[in-house]
Computed example of a mutant assay.
Amino acid sequence: MNAAVLTPPDIRARKGGEPLVCLTAYTTPVAKLVDPYCDVVLVGDSVGMVLHGLPSTVPVSLDMMVLHGQAVRRGLSRALMVVDLPFGSYEESPAQAFRSAARLLGETEAGAVKLEGGVAMADTIRFLNLRGVPVMAHIGLTPQAVNQFGGYKVQGRGDQATLVRQDAVAVAEAGAFAVVLEKVTDPLARDITADLKIPTIGIGASPACDGQILVVDDVLGLFTDFKPRFAKRYAELGRMADAAIAAYRDDVRARRFPGEEHVFGDAPRTKA
């Protein structure tokens, strides 16, 4: 029998306990692979870069998130599924955010949404939380604001540390059940983790965070356009796939494939 599906309160209750294991997924087969091992599976807007070849997450649409959310939902039986609200689908107003979140939850059966921003998004998080939409927050480096940051830069150094702290406190007080800290300096991430009453989930932050998240394609070595410093590759499936496809090409050109065992005769084969 499958374990019960994890919920946002379950994740929040893990504060200070066993570290939370989180990965992204964008397809049904990958969702099935990661589900037994993960507490949270994020359908991230990183899908735009990883699967669709986009230069950033900014062009990702709500339709795209719904499509991939539905695919991932079919592959999960235990982990909490969280879906990203894409750029432009929530920043205008809390009401816009609710409409977008309601669509994601209704059409994908996700357990929660994730949105980027701290102090500026606190009212929106509070608005959603009061209307039954669980929210995972995301502060530090927020990829949807990459143009404003001028690149994928580390956050929390020098005077920035105060701003990141303020963002962390704001999203927690607004009702977020967890917060992603991306590319935040280790000392600052440790302090925030100690101060907040909700779990922190690090990505390029600190081992002291209450959990960790990575893009699954980075973990498996499938996304090879670039490798973030904070990502650890546990396999090199991209290289293996390259070798397999090259071997297939060689077999086809040498007429070694298909072989007798791959084709069909005029009459069914009989067993000996």
Rank of each mutant, 00 (worst) to 15 (best):
I125Y: 06
T124H: 04
V154D: 01
G106Q: 03
F98V: 05
R99C: 04
V135T: 08
K183W: 10
K153N: 15
D167A: 09
A122P: 07
S206Q: 13
Q96E: 12
T142D: 00
R126Y: 02
T185M: 02
T193G: 08
G211P: 07
G132I: 13
G106W: 01
N129I: 03
D191F: 03
I201K: 07
P199A: 07
P143K: 05
V219F: 13
Q166P: 00
A95D: 14
T185V: 15
A122R: 12
G117E: 11
A189T: 12
Y152W: 14
G221N: 12
R103P: 06
L105E: 06
P94A: 06
L181R: 12
A170Q: 12
V146M: 01
I125M: 08
A137R: 05
A178S: 15
G150E: 08
L222G: 06
D159A: 15
V133A: 10
A189Q: 13
L130P: 01
A170C: 11
G211I: 06
L163V: 14
P187S: 11
A122K: 08
D186N: 14
D123N: 14
M136G: 04
P143G: 07
R126M: 01
G88W: 01
A176D: 08
E173G: 06
N129W: 13
L214Y: 07
G117P: 09
V216S: 13
P187I: 07
R131I: 10
S206V: 13
V179E: 07
D217R: 02
M121I: 04
V154R: 14
P199Q: 08
V154W: 00
L163G: 12
M136T: 03
D159K: 14
D167T: 08
L141N: 09
Q212E: 15
A161D: 07
V180N: 06
G150L: 03
T142S: 11
D159C: 01
L128K: 09
V179M: 05
V135E: 08
L222E: 00
E91L: 01
L222W: 03
D186C: 11
H138D: 06
I201W: 01
D218H: 13
R131S: 08
S206N: 11
L220H: 12
T108G: 02
P187V: 04
G140I: 12
Q155N: 02
L115N: 06
P134W: 01
D186Q: 14
A137M: 04
M121W: 02
L104Q: 07
P94V: 09
Q148W: 10
I198K: 06
A161L: 04
K153F: 00
T108L: 00
S93P: 07
A137L: 03
D167K: 07
G156V: 11
F87L: 03
S100V: 03
G117W: 05
N129M: 04
I125Q: 05
V171N: 10
A205Q: 11
D191L: 14
I201F: 04
A170L: 11
T142L: 00
P86M: 02
E182L: 09
E173H: 07
D210A: 08
V180D: 02
T142I: 11
V179G: 10
